[in-house]
Simulated scan of single mutants.
Amino acid sequence: MPDSDPLACVIVEDNEMNRLTLEHFVAITPGLTLQAALEDGRQALHYLHTEPPVQVLLLDIEMPHLTGLDLIRVLPKPLPAIVLVTSHEAFAVEAFELPVIDYLVKPVEYARFLQAVQLVRDRRHREPASLPARPPATIELAAPGSSDLFVKVNGRLVRLNFDEVLYIEALATYSVLVTAAQKHIVYASLKILEDRLPFAHFMRVHRSYIVNTQRIDAVEDHVLLLGPYQVPVGKSYQTTLRDRLNTL
């Protein structure tokens, strides 16, 4: 069932036939409205800086002057839900280093398009859009030399033993501290936590993950196994992680 409020979409595609196909898909999909159909990344950058915000960006990767991947890196925040569209699956690895919901390969079939739309809706339902704004998390050492920190969780300072934290995951404007026993929502970005954590054994391994390197059980095909959980390793972090693990 579509959301009660339609999702405003912008299409960025330099191929006219592909652009018209996406326009048609948006038009026949309940709960979507087309706000703009643009021919290249430069037009899109100007549009997204100057026009009302959109919820969904259907974005071609291979475009002249400014590729879709480059456009994502310079878009104003907060980002819309981004669905990439391309002719080459080879871009998938690099694409998922970026905040992308899904990746469609041309020629796009309508059934696959609907799957991407559902992923966008599912993600929106998981995002804490209804949560009130909160101040950045307070992170304070409980005592000199201690592995405990006081972290603001759900509006109160909670004492956590960071030796028990397996990894930290970014979710929208907040983060989740994951232990083997439970998860704690912290109202701070992953960048804030990365900058403030005083422990050298916590390491960024992906744009969405920081891991406790002392709790890594195994590494399999650029995936870290930490207890019952699996954490992906981003391409740009693989060499640094390998060097770090070699010193453990």
Rank of each mutant, 00 (worst) to 15 (best):
F202E: 05
F162L: 10
Y187F: 12
E220S: 08
L32I: 07
E164F: 13
V176W: 13
P78C: 13
V117E: 02
R159W: 05
V10S: 13
P136D: 11
R207H: 15
A129D: 07
T179F: 07
P53M: 03
Q214P: 01
R121I: 05
I210Y: 06
L66K: 04
L7M: 03
A8V: 15
V205N: 10
V54E: 12
S147P: 03
E89W: 04
G68D: 08
K106V: 09
R215V: 03
R121D: 02
R204H: 04
R196M: 12
P144F: 12
A92R: 07
V12S: 03
L79E: 10
N15Q: 06
A37D: 05
T179E: 01
R242V: 08
I168N: 03
V100N: 09
S147Y: 04
S4C: 00
L193C: 04
P64Q: 06
Y209D: 02
L22H: 14
T240F: 06
A36F: 10
P198G: 05
L131Y: 13
D148N: 13
V186N: 07
Q182Y: 03
G227H: 02
I101T: 15
K152Y: 01
E94W: 13
E109T: 03
T21Q: 14
S175C: 14
A44G: 06
E13H: 10
Q238L: 10
V219A: 06
P135R: 08
A218D: 15
N212Q: 06
T86P: 05
F113H: 13
I168E: 01
P198S: 01
Y47K: 01
H88W: 12
L157T: 04
P136G: 10
Y110R: 05
I28Q: 15
E169D: 05
D243F: 00
I61W: 06
L7R: 09
S147A: 13
L149Y: 02
V219T: 11
E62P: 00
P228M: 02
V93G: 02
L224N: 10
L241N: 15
R123Y: 15
K183N: 09
K152E: 14
A116K: 07
K152Q: 05
Q182P: 00
D243M: 09
F202I: 04
G234I: 01
R73A: 14
M63T: 14
N18Q: 11
L48W: 04
G234S: 11
G234W: 08
Y229G: 07
Y47E: 05
P99L: 03
A111F: 15
V178Q: 09
E169H: 03
L149Q: 02
